[in-house]
Design a protein around this nucleic acid. Structure first.
Lengths: 356, 356
DNA sequence: TCCGAAGCTGCAACCGGTTGCACGGTAGCC
DNA sequence: GGCTACCGTGCAACCGGTTGCAGCTTCGGA
């Protein structure tokens, strides 16, 4: 803490006014004559004074802080979201507290509760909390969820369904007659969404759809299910996220199964490394998602402070399918979809053999 | 913010004591009779009261918050550090504010200043700030630097030099007669350290050492310098960090140069993906580094609060060399160093041809 | 029995701004 | 000229805990 910072009273004395005038010179300029205001500002500058945030928060009842809670900051899916939220918050004069739930709902609740006491709003990313708990948190401060939909609570979601449909169409067009989806964490909302989207897409194109039960760990989840996939005769795999997909790719490599020659793999999230590894995936502008969420949250905080009634909004951000090496070549004559060229090891040079 | 939380006075009234007694029942239990204390705690529980952090901070002059400032949260090097720091802070009852400097010293200064006003301590990770600025920040709150050494300021550094020496010995043992080091950001402290370590190691083993001037961007920095590397006849490359190393690997693949057959590549940081990609690198227990730094910071805060004089400590954390696929095989008879087996695409199956 | 020490507890001021209300002064209006 | 309206400013209370100091008990020792 600053050792001996000036206070309002110091500034007031120097400017020859009362503390209230100093306070108002900043908070309600229109209430103060231009001349007095000038004197106050000058005195403040001379003493190098800025109002103490804590004291201000205490009376105003608002902290100008928000908290971002994520399941695991090491999961590369989250840092871009956090950065986006951070920058937007900063732009609007808010600071960001960080909470990590370690993928655990109980811990998430604890962390969120603790943080709720010292911020104006909570940004819950990929929350594992039951809707009831989230609604309860909202009694204590504003809440916006990301990658989750809770009735009555504002949220930002990435709309992966259209991309999932395209992915299925791509795979079907390439000759695969069944799609295997490898699930993520059981309590993950987006996992449920993706299962539904893939199933719907398969139904629409009359393709068989198999869903593999979730297991724990990210990379290992993928690697561990490879035997099941091969036993089931899978040739086209969609995975819950990129880490899982990379685990699958690694597991397939362990068994000398070629990707995409024998099995095509598509992940989800477009983590920074994905493009460089040639991993096909579904991505989105994550910085913008984070920023949108923070913006939404701060607007809600402002509205609430203004006494306006609560109103929840749901923002959908479109996703993009990146067809890269692991997805196999597009069917002849099919529409070319987006995706930078694969760029990893020599492998990307060889054009993978199309499935028989 | 909590809508209508109870206050000390409410609790005091219910317990039939004065507000001061309530306050002391929590902060100075030994001053209060067991019986009174019991009544107070019960009343507090009944009203579901916890002391307001803001109000407490205002009088106590401490916030129980620390801030972590990183150059770029999306750089996979930082999330493990942040998580470690976060958990340790949390364990000790501190919350964490997050600042992102976007790799820019001016912005870092601004962010740090802003945060310094609302926390008890600052954790600067891979700070780009001139030492003078850091010392100045320390006038306003406690500071601990990570991955940086500033005289008079506590810090935690990863000791990469021994691993760099080993890496050079490995390469020399494998027959390479020169080592090329690809620099990172010009103002990065750890880059300077690594240049020095590599040069020293080369000198010690009588090997030529070439340092490539830094350029911007991470992955692209690596990719862009490949032509220079090849023109210089490089066969063994050490890179500032893993992202740069991956860029180099990608650039080499673009030109059909085999890794490690024609060129061996070793990175630094052991980012989560490195093991899975078979990238040789220098790693460290980053969670512990973050935790150690947070612990150091909080201890300093406590000591300072106790009125004890400042004392700066420097903690060195040892690093580990992971020799994986891209480093090429160990020379026959050489000591086998650590490193899990490579696990990415079929490539890892083929044993790379040793350099002629 | 009296005195001093020690243990609890309450009073009131304080941390540093903020804000409802009242007051003095000036201007506009009839 | 008197009255009202409004503007600019200060007073004092307040946000919610914390803490120095003093007062009251109780207890031990002389």
């Amino acid at each position: 803490m600053a050792p001996v910072s000036a206070t309002v009273r110091d500034v007031a004395r120097l400017a020859g006014v009362s503390p209230s005038t100093v306070s108002r010179a900043l908070a309600r300029p229109e209430m103060i004559s231009a001349e007095t205001r000038g004197r106050v500002l000058e005195a403040a500058r001379a003493l190098d004074w800025v109002p103490n945030r804590l004291a201000r928060s205490l009376t105003r009842g608002s902290t100008e802080n928000i908290a971002v809670v994520v399941p695991d900051i090491v999961n590369p899916f989250f840092p871009p979201l956090i950065r986006g939220g951070q920058q937007e918050a900063w732009r609007r004069g808010f600071s960001v507290l960080l909470g990590d739930s370690n993928e655990d709902a109980a811990r998430e609740l604890h962390v969120a509760n603790e943080l709720a006491a010292q911020v104006d709003g909570l940004l819950l990313m990929s929350s594992r909390l039951p809707a009831r708990e989230i609604l309860e948190l909202r009694e204590r401060c504003e809440v916006v969820v990301v990658n989750r939909v809770v009735r009555g609570v504002s949220g930002v979601v990435i709309d992966t369904a259209p991309s999932a449909r395209r992915a299925v169409r791509h795979l079907v067009g390439a000759g695969h007659d069944a799609v295997h989806y490898v699930s993520g964490p059981a309590d993950s909302w987006s996992n449920k969404q993706r299962v539904a989207a893939v199933q719907a897409a398969c139904d629409a194109s009359g393709t068989a759809c198999h869903v593999l039960a979730p297991s724990v760990g990210a990379f290992e989840r993928g690697r561990a299910c490879v035997d099941d996939l091969l036993a089931a005769g899978a040739t086209a795999v969609l995975a819950y996220d990129d880490i899982t997909a990379l685990g699958i790719v690694a597991g397939l490599a362990d068994r000398d199964v070629r990707v995409p020659g024998d099995v095509a793999v598509i992940g989800c999230d477009d983590i920074p490394m994905a493009g460089q590894l040639g991993l096909a995936t579904i991505g989105a502008p994550f910085d913008s998602v984070g920023a949108a969420a923070a913006g939404l949250l701060i607007e809600q905080i402002a509205r609430r402070a203004g006494g306006a009634p609560r109103r929840s909004r749901l923002v959908r951000v479109p996703s993009t399918l990146f067809l890269r090496r692991t997805a196999g070549p597009a069917p002849a004559g099919g529409p070319a979809l987006s995706g930078e060229g694969a760029a990893m090891p020599a492998r990307s040079r060889r054009s993978p053999r199309a499935r028989a």
